[in-house]
Each structure stands twice: as C-alpha cells, then as structure tokens.
Amino acid sequence: MFAWLQPRPKEKHAMGNVSWLRAAVLGANDGILSVSGLLIGVSSAEVSQRNIALTGVSGLIAGALSMAAGEYVSVSSQADLETADLDLERQEMEQHWDEEVIELTNVYIKRGLDRELARTVATKLMEHDALEAHARDELGINMYSIAKPLQASLSSAGAFSTGAILPLITALLSPIEHVTFILTFSTLFFLAFLGIVGAQIGGANRMRAIFRVTVLGVIAMAVTSLVGKFFETPT
C-alpha cells in the first residue's frame, strides 16, 4: 500500500569505481605480465632455479618501486595543474566577479538551459560555493577528489606486487624442467581471473575482458620466450 510513496533505490553506476579500478587492474596486470615475462624469458634460457628466483624477486621489487615512483610523479603533476587552475580561478573571482558569473552562465547555456535560467543557476551556485561551481562545471575538477600522489603511489605499488607475487610463487614451486610450461598456463589463468574480477566490479562483459587480457598476455609471453631461447645457455 502506498508503495508509490516509497523512494526508489539509488542506482549503482559502474563509473563510481572507474578511478581505483583502473589503477588496481593496471597494476595487477602489469605485475603478472612483467614478472611472468621475465621468468619465462630466463627459464627458456635454461638457467638454474636460483637465477629464476633472483630474477623474479628483482623484477617484483624493481617493478613495484617503478610503479610507485611513476604514479607519484604523474599524479603530483596532475595535482599541481589542478591547484594552479584553482588558484587562478580564485584570483579571477576576487577581481572579476561579474565576468565569472557570465562565464558560468555561458557554460550552462551550452548545456541546454535558456539564458535567464542559466544565469539564475550560476548566481545561486556561486553564492553557495563559487570556487566549487567553477571547478566542477568550468574546469571539470571535483573538489572532493583532488589527486593524491602518495595514495596513488602506494596503491599502484601494492597492486603490482599483488599481481607479481603470483607468477613468482608459481615458478618457485614448479619443477625446473617444467617452469616455462607451468608459468605460461598459470599466467593465462591469473590474467583471465583478473579480467573476470575487473569486469564484475566494472559491470562489463566478462568474455570480452577475458579475451582482451589473455590475448595480450599470450603475445607478451611468446615474445619473451623467444628472447630467452635466443640467449639459451649452451649445455
């Protein structure tokens, strides 16, 4: 009774997961492929178990630090640009308030509002929080999710390490004469599982996600295996 009075449940959109999902999948995928590629390359050259272990551990540490450093620099640059734009916008509002109202009004007109309504909306939003309104609607910056370099750096390193540890453990537990074979198929399994997880969280097609990551994985492993064969240690 009176069910029509009940609020409709809020929709759950996949776009809410896009930022962290992209970083997590990218890091884990990079970790799996990078370390697996290294291990398949050296195992194809018929090196010792000790060399395989050393290569895997070195690849994991180097890759995690590289991801952390790269992400920190990248996100720091993004944060600097966002801060500079916000500072400029703050200065413009202090010196040219009316012009900024007109600027925001034109943004809403381009989005489909008539001029009178657009000016009313712009005025009201600027009275509430002028910088937030311009940041969101003019610059496309979300004031509540400004880039955080340290957080991004640690997340990328953690995601890479999580992915990289899987082929490393697999290689260490496999018989030396079957490392390449076992690594190849286990890596495809890890990539397929990662594709399923990413598709599930992001609401995407599972088969398309699996196909995408496994095909690219096969290509990467084939290339590194050929390189290893080229430098195969003579018996």
Rank of each mutant, 00 (worst) to 15 (best):
I146V: 09
E46C: 03
N29C: 05
T180A: 12
L226H: 09
I201S: 08
S44V: 06
Q91H: 13
A220G: 15
A204R: 14
L226S: 12
I210W: 07
K124M: 09
P167G: 09
A69L: 09
T105I: 13
S44A: 15
V215H: 12
A79S: 04
S66P: 00
S43R: 05
V121E: 02
S66R: 00
K110D: 12
L104Q: 02
F230K: 11
M67H: 01
L226Q: 12
I146G: 06
W20F: 10
T120Q: 11
G163T: 01
T55C: 07
E116H: 13
P9H: 02
V179F: 03
S34W: 01
A118W: 02
L172K: 10
P7R: 13
M93S: 03
A199W: 02
T123C: 11
H13N: 09
M1E: 10
H128M: 07
L60I: 09
L173A: 15
L166P: 08
F2E: 14
H13D: 08
I165N: 01
L125R: 08
L88W: 09
L131G: 00
S225D: 09
E100R: 01
G56E: 07
N205M: 07
A28L: 08
S48M: 08
L150Y: 04
M143H: 09
M207C: 06
V223L: 13
R8S: 14
A133P: 02
F181C: 06
F2S: 14
Q91P: 02
Q78F: 07
Q49S: 11
A147F: 02
L154D: 03
S77Q: 07
N106S: 08
D87S: 09
S155Q: 10
I210N: 06
F2G: 13
A79I: 01
S58L: 06
V121R: 04
I219K: 10
S76K: 06
V218K: 03
Y108S: 01
K110R: 11
A135V: 03
L172W: 12
V73K: 00
N106A: 06
E116S: 14
G217P: 04
F185H: 11
D129T: 04
G195H: 05
K12M: 10
S186N: 12
S74N: 01
M15I: 13
V57P: 00
I141C: 00
L117R: 15
R50A: 14
L54N: 10
Q6W: 14
P167R: 07
F230G: 11
S58W: 03
R208F: 06
Y108K: 00
F211E: 04
V107H: 02
